[in-house]
Design a protein around this nucleic acid. Sequence first.
DNA 1: CTGAAAGCGCTAACAG
DNA 2: CTGTTAGCGCTTTCAG
Lengths: 335, 335
Amino acid sequence: MLDDDGKRPTIYDVAKEAGVAASTVSRALARPDRVNARTREHVLAVATRLGYRANPIARALPSGRTQTVALFVSDVTNPHFFGIIRGAEQQTRAAGCTLILGDTEESPDLESGNIERLSGSVDGFVVAASRMSDSRIKELASRHRLTLVSRQVDGVPSAIVDHEDGTRQIIEHLASLGHTSVVYLAGPRRSWLAAKRWQVIRATARQFDMAAERLGPFPPAVRGGAAAADAAFGKGATAAIAHNDLLAIGMLRRFADRGVRVPDDISVVGYDDIFGADFCSPSLTTLAGQFEEAGRIAVDLLLGVRDGVRRSRSGSQVVLPSHLEIRASTGPAPR
Amino acid sequence: MLDDDGKRPTIYDVAKEAGVAASTVSRALARPDRVNARTREHVLAVATRLGYRANPIARALPSGRTQTVALFVSDVTNPHFFGIIRGAEQQTRAAGCTLILGDTEESPDLESGNIERLSGSVDGFVVAASRMSDSRIKELASRHRLTLVSRQVDGVPSAIVDHEDGTRQIIEHLASLGHTSVVYLAGPRRSWLAAKRWQVIRATARQFDMAAERLGPFPPAVRGGAAAADAAFGKGATAAIAHNDLLAIGMLRRFADRGVRVPDDISVVGYDDIFGADFCSPSLTTLAGQFEEAGRIAVDLLLGVRDGVRRSRSGSQVVLPSHLEIRASTGPAPR
DNA sequence: CTGAAAGCGCTAACAG
DNA sequence: CTGTTAGCGCTTTCAG
């Protein structure tokens, strides 16, 4: 063995051992069809015998491709992202690549900072629930490969779970239970989703002759629930739509502490159907969507594997269906 | 501007523009003290003007250091890992490095396979809740930088949350409630933790004159809870310790469905104090620990920032304290 | 089909 | 203190 000097064997070691040129080894490995079958097999045999493993760094230098994609989420501990993370991880691995995960802590600056920092070590970026402005996203997308999850920006490929029809389902559900007004407990000011949801809630409520009011913003976490619950209760609301399940669960707890009965005194609806939404008490009515699929699609779009359901000059914007998971936190309006 | 040919500027572009040699640029950037203050500032100014950004790949090739660490968890969607992931992410970033996250799907082969695959693109590995055998871990640790979370192996640095004293707290709690026997709903056969927990449960129960029995294994997920609950109930147990909170929560649901009252008919205890343990119904008594800190420490140990609390010839094995979070799922033994 | 040779962008001796 | 000169390991023309 020529190379037990402690370092791992390179193509040169393999080449020398196999009695061929390094470039032949390279080809045998990367473009097997461009090499004589006999030599290819010989080279491959020697490579395995020597325990040769390609150095990904060295391979990335000339080509510029790192076989790596980065996923940024605004908060790794938010269960909302689990499905997205898992889907992205699976699809990345399926494509023979590696996923890098970053937490941007709800900060637009950390998002763009991380993108700049990793540009060069990564083939592309998937940004979930971006807090950046449309213009900043466009600018970054023009200089880097970039796709979005739970966010739509003109010209940038994205995968989102439908919120328009989903929100309509929520309002319809509440209306059918006799509610005549609804409050929306808003998420962060920077959240695109929060803005969108409120738009649709207001528009749809009007169609159903329901009054709609927005309160907040509240931190999209369980701890935000106390203030949200108090605000909703203070307004005398009979139906509350929380920006997400975390907030909704926090509200349920606050209501329980204050002796407010759910759904007898007030109905509560969330978004996302996160882990826990089915076993909190009462179990939470919430809008469920295929977030895992969204993660997968975002990676596909990034890697160019998939063209997108609707492809237009503005890029591929995939919208996944959502459905209302009706549980115990919603009921007839109190009279 | 010399370099708006679409590619990003290199040190050569900066060097030419600044009228110095490339190596001077390299030094000005990496070892500012080895360069005349005047030239350094000039070079730096030119670099910023040109929008120069170091290419991490190119930098990694000669040095072999990628400023990247990989974290493997056995299941990204298991809330147990959230704290660990977050802690590791924070500490990695604090060290100026990047975290790669991998899901090994409870498979020892995927663990070692991924380690081999990423070796070379990564400075080291943190493996959480490894399913590999001690010998395989030792072997890998001898060839790669590697630290462990929630697992101890001789000679390999690790951070775990105490289970010995914690388990004693659980048994003591149950004994004080008058329970005279306990069943342990075991986790996966390959799980080191599952084995350890059972050892300690059995030993401690004996000290308290309690009978102890192990049932299972069960999948450490909510869906495993039904079978676990039925098994525990079938044995006529008055107190059940689940391998983790996921399993415990699944059990609570099954008991609710079957009309078994918790804690009146049976007490349930979990491990980890995951998201949801405080709002399931009844809320879950569980052993809480500083998993975020464990993630941080594992990264520190890997990067050599920290020496470990107990350093021995066998490496640094850090044990973090745990405490019993007593909630509503445990109560006096039925008479 | 295969070999020689020129880089990819940066670091690190080694001279000056 | 700064410039020159080799590489790091692999890919990729370009000849042969």
